[in-house]
Write a protein that binds this DNA or RNA. Structure first.
Lengths: 195, 195
DNA sequence: GTCTATATACCGATAGAC
DNA sequence: GTCTATCGGTATATAGAC
């Protein structure tokens, strides 16, 4: 199954989504035009509408792609980290590992949701499900730790801290600030799970 | 001084800035057009360029206006709160008081900076000075408290927490989440300043 | 200072040849 | 599936009458 390595060049539709994902992150959804995406992919603007009827359809595909990559990342953390505490640490370390992109473009999830919220975009709810993936996964880790506070509150708080760091990192572009806040989140986690 | 109450109708330029301030907050800078602002103010698009040469000039004026209102707010906190701890509490309470707007449009400062950062806008630095106003003021309060940690780190952390709450409040639109995080920030402040 | 009219450019989206 | 050509709409910005 799926062993036909003769499907190599990656279908045009997938290449569009791949490039749109990056361009939406780097420049924002509204600010990224068909012309920009088409130029990056190397196709004409006209060919575009053969794969996607409207721009919103591309955004929906990008969100779906990000949901898949998020799910894969969460699964990888479950593989490399044995305990729930270590898995929560993986989430915190993600901020440190992606600090270069975060300082340049912010958080991919948070910045997209913020833009869609301002424009009252119909896909705000869909983009919010990516936050929901993290929230649910974080809550599950806290639930396994039998902590004193509500697991969902702790999940939301950890999510909020990561978003706050992302916004200020994007503004100040200070890697030392990110390092300090990441260390602070690790200390918070230790204080929260120890009992 | 300044007793000439004969300058009542507020000059057109000021009315433009006033409406642009609100519209940029509610809908974002790039997404807000001249036509929208002109309609709100009640003038024609043509009249617009008599007061502002380019759109960036309006943004610069809006940022200046927000800097003034921020400075006024910080001064008011210094009046109503006697101790540095109470003043820091005023900052935290601001999140609770503005929760309705925050849930609808996010943080005025954070959301503007995030948008400008994505577009590599030349006025990102100018908008960042509003964050700097809060940062400096918060740091000064912590300095007066002789806390164990670096006052600037504490200022940035408090700023980051408020931004994180704003982003998630904007996505989930959950007033109870805001209330919980505000209470959590107050507890954090108490734990940080007590010694 | 305010208006109408318009220039110029880009946007998303469509039509149709190949 | 990919292309060229183009439509209709809107954006910022300008010119000039009043």
């Amino acid at each position: 199954m799926d062993d036909n390595s003769t499907a190599p060049p990656l279908r045009t539709r997938d290449r569009i989504v791949e490039h749109a994902d990056r361009l939406f992150y780097e420049g924002g959804y509204d600010h990224t035009s068909f012309a920009t995406i088409a130029a990056e992919v190397g196709i004409s603007r006209g060919n575009f509408h053969h794969h996607f009827k409207a721009k919103d359809d591309i955004l929906a595909a990008v969100i779906e792609r990000r949901r898949n990559s998020t799910a894969a990342m969460l699964r990888s953390w479950e593989r490399v980290a044995a305990t729930p505490t270590d898995r929560l640490g993986c989430f915190i370390d993600m901020v440190a590992e992606n600090r270069q992109d975060i300082m340049r473009f912010g958080c991919p999830v948070g910045s997209l949701c913020s833009e869609l919220a301002k424009q009252e975009h119909s896909l705000l709810g869909a983009s919010g499900t990516i936050f929901e993936q993290f929230r649910t996964w974080l809550r599950e880790q806290f639930e396994q730790l039998d902590v004193a506070q509500e697991p969902d509150d702790l999940a939301m708080h950890l999510l909020a801290m990561s978003q706050g760091v992302a916004v200020l990192a994007n503004v100040y572009k200070d890697p030392e600030f990110v390092a300090r806040e990441v260390a602070r989140m690790h200390r918070w986690l230790d204080d929260t799970v120890e009992r």
